[in-house]
């Protein structure tokens, strides 16, 4: 259980809700809190979002603040950047991260660079929400996991929570942040439930990992869907192997200290993330540990991800390429 609530934490009331509902709650609270916050994207209004995340928000906040856009990712991403530069606090939804290529110009050359290029004289308080991940037969153009691109690219923060609680806390921080944050939501866990604090002042700082389960023998750094699967696996292995599960939650900035501390204790590291393996998130996490805990490592670092292919359509093929708990278990078995 997380303890990183900000000061002013209210009553410790929590409620069980889905990942999707936790995000919607964060959106609702932040829109109530700050009228400069607005949402725009494809079908976010009356439709309620293609994954029903925005839901009924349009009824509460109206069409001006829960704004359906034309299918013009470059146009409305740019409009988000322009709005953020002029005193608004936009939340831009890109329906599938696979579509980010369509608007990446506005992200990489405007959103990510303006503050720096202008000598720090402008802020860019924009949040981009997008979905990732395979598992629903959506095939290659609607199933990708692209967060590594933006965790790599200087000037944006990349957040990818694995639990409803962290989704709420981090999204609220993203919206309040004066920096651009891209918030990656794995669509396979939208229905996953968890206890979520109801306190409207509950936020989680971007750049802090969370130890979801303590263990002694091996550290599993898992993201998004892999967090839940790794936790279940850890329970199954309980008594044989003591598994520590950490959700980094934020990929950039990355909480190196928490990861390093864990590996110093366990001596073994498995990284489970749904992105492709080459030049990736796994590599960065592994390298940070190598740089800081090289002499604590008792075994080679193991990577669990996608073997540099796209997500195929046929359920058999899709299941083949996606990482699962069984892959994490195999990785653990290789080094423990």
């Amino acid at each position: 259980m997380s303890t990183e609530t900000t000061s002013g934490t209210g009553p410790a009331d929590t409620q069980e809700m889905t990942f999707r509902e936790a995000i919607r709650l964060a959106l609702r609270e932040e829109m109530e809190r700050d009228e400069d916050v607005f949402i725009m994207g494809e079908d976010v209004g009356k439709f309620g979002g293609v994954y029903e995340v925005t839901g009924d928000l349009v009824e509460q906040f109206g069409e001006a603040r829960v704004r359906d856009t034309p299918i013009s990712e470059a146009g409305f991403m740019g409009a988000g950047v322009g709005a953020a530069a002029t005193g608004s606090r936009p939340i831009v939804e890109i329906m599938f991260s696979d579509f980010i290529g369509v608007c990446s110009e506005q992200i990489i050359n405007q959103m990510a660079k303006n503050r720096y290029m202008f000598g720090g004289k402008t802020e860019m308080p924009i949040t981009v929400r997008t979905t990732e991940g395979g598992g629903s037969g959506a095939a290659s153009q609607h199933s990708g996991t692209l967060h590594t691109w933006f965790a790599h690219f200087p000037g944006v923060m990349a957040v990818a929570p694995g639990t409803p609680e962290s989704a709420k806390g981090l999204l609220k921080s993203a919206i309040r942040s004066d920096d651009p944050v891209i918030f990656f939501e794995n669509k396979e866990i939208y229905g996953q439930t968890g206890e979520v604090p109801l306190d409207e002042n509950y936020t989680l700082p971007i750049g802090e990992a969370n130890v979801e389960r303590e263990g002694e023998d091996v550290t599993v750094v898992a993201t998004q869907r892999m967090v839940g699967e790794s936790l279940e696996l850890a329970e199954e292995l309980d008594g044989q192997v003591s598994v520590e599960v950490i959700d980094p939650r934020s990929l950039y900035p990355l909480d190196t200290d928490t990861l390093v501390e864990s590996v110093k204790k366990t001596g073994r590291l498995v990284i489970a993330d749904e992105s492709p393996l080459s030049y990736g998130t796994h590599a960065e996490i592994g390298m940070r540990v190598m740089e800081n805990a090289f002499f604590s490592l008792d075994a080679p670092i193991q990577r669990v991800g996608v073997a540099d292919v796209h997500i195929p359509f046929s359920p058999v093929l899709e299941d083949e390429v996606l990482p699962h708990a069984s892959d994490v278990e195999a990785a653990i078995n290789r080094i423990v």
Binding site: G78, V81, G82, A83, A85, Q106
Partner: peptide, 13 residues
Amino acid sequence: PLATGAALTAQLK
């Protein structure tokens, strides 16, 4: 697109 966004701020506010 940036001008469109700035105009959106003006309209919203």
